[in-house]
Design a protein around this nucleic acid. Structure first.
Lengths: 236, 236
DNA sequence: AGATACCGAATTGTCGACATTATTGAGGAT
DNA sequence: ATCCTCAATAATGTCGACAATTCGGTATCT
């Protein structure tokens, strides 16, 4: 029975140097940005050379990414970039909506003046880019806005969770801004959310975020109906 | 460019034999059931012998559990059972509430006759045990009831997510049933949720689940105020 | 006595080698 | 032509050994 270690005094603050961070982070980035295509095989030896890291580190990274839902692993058959189906993407979006509503509510309750300043800054930029017709720049700012809300909510648990969710469904987000009239309404919805947070009105923030993400979901369904067939499965 | 592998035809259905499942599952079980105490060091060599598995497998399991939030790892300093603070536990409960509301809503929308039969079965058992004053047996059935709802919702994404959340805060759940009058009200709340699902009324299911988990949260806050000392009884 | 440097035990991180398993393609039988 | 067998190949899973690092205790100096 060597289980005699449980004093809380041992938990000193220290630089939280996590373990195999480098390779994990780079591999993750590669998957999210699409450098590895969905369903592509991830051979450990190859990755080992590409990231010049030992196979052990690659392996650990793959385990993490598996748990995170970005790759799938099968016994003796290796790892692949996980392909999330349309249905799954919708489910993920629903879950994300539930979490973001909570975060918006808490942000409205807890936001400091500094939080609001940051949020306003992003929103001002969004207005500018929208006015210039810069749709790409606008959709780049979109995640920034939401992340500011997560920060203001002071709920790391929910924040991290919604972050991993977003990484899973990120491939689908690019299509949504193509819908006619979508950017304009998107901007308006963000204004409403911002207003509710500034007013410190959790109920309104919840409702505004609900409406916003309901619109996003609807747009996503629209995009899925209209999407030209994914050019995966080539006709041989 | 050896990255020319992306046909969907390759994704055949097959037994999804995940990788190092055995050791991971046993270690996880050990942590959840409290055989390893919070903040206890998890030395790889020891675990290797205890679970008689290679150190490699133990290591992989620890990586997974780290990503899952059940252990924390620091570079060159090993792994410990993660201690979740009271504040974190409350945050987790809030997130869980948001997700379970979604799941209750979807369960009400999609539940089949079979789902409802299963759910009724659990509820009948709960009534019995409550009538017998069997508080322990009652709280054992509690997770079963919720899991049936997750199954009926047909939303694996949210289901798995709420499952991992629950495992993180499980240590706190034992205290809640000690509050005077809590079992009775808990049973009543479960009846309401069940009724809403049977009636296929998503709105009502959402509201009932919200009320239920709001009560749980309140009880949790109460328990935290009253906790003399977290008595980690060792179940050997 | 108190602070500091330092050494040794314990533990983790990493690498390479080997066994195990799946996959592919050729070849032969029906 | 189709199906089956079977070896060749490629990739993963696993084990052991070694280097690197942390931590506790001890000796040393002021």
């Amino acid at each position: 029975m060597a289980r005699t270690e449980l004093r809380q005094a041992d938990v000193r603050k220290r630089a939280p140097t996590e373990v195999g961070l480098g390779t994990y982070r780079r591999l993750r980035e590669g998957i999210i940005t699409g450098r590895f295509q969905p369903n592509e095989r991830l051979v450990e030896a190859n990755l080992s050379k590409m990231l010049n890291a030992g196979r052990t580190a690659v392996r650990a990274a793959l385990v993490r990414l598996d748990q995170e839902g970005l790759v799938t692993r099968e016994h003796n058959r290796g790892a692949r970039v996980r392909l999330v189906s349309d249905e799954e993407a919708l489910q993920i979006e629903e879950v994300r909506a539930a979490l973001e509503r909570l975060l918006a509510r808490q942000a409205a309750a807890k936001a400091t003046a500094s939080d609001i300043r940051e949020l306003r800054h992003v929103l001002v930029d969004m207005r500018k880019r929208f006015a210039n017709g810069d749709a790409i720049g606008y959709s780049e700012l979109n995640p920034r806005f939401h992340q500011q809300i997560w920060a203001a909510a002071r709920n790391p648990t929910a924040g991290q969770m919604v972050g991993t969710l977003k990484s899973q469904s990120l491939r689908f987000q690019y299509q949504t801004m193509l819908r006619p009239g979508r950017p304009e309404r998107s901007l308006h919805e963000h204004e409403l959310i911002f207003g509710a947070i500034v007013a410190h009105d959790p109920e309104a923030a919840d409702a505004a975020m609900r409406d916003h993400l309901e619109e996003v979901l609807e747009t996503l369904r629209w995009a899925m109906g209209h999407k030209s067939r994914p050019q995966h499965w080539l006709p041989d």
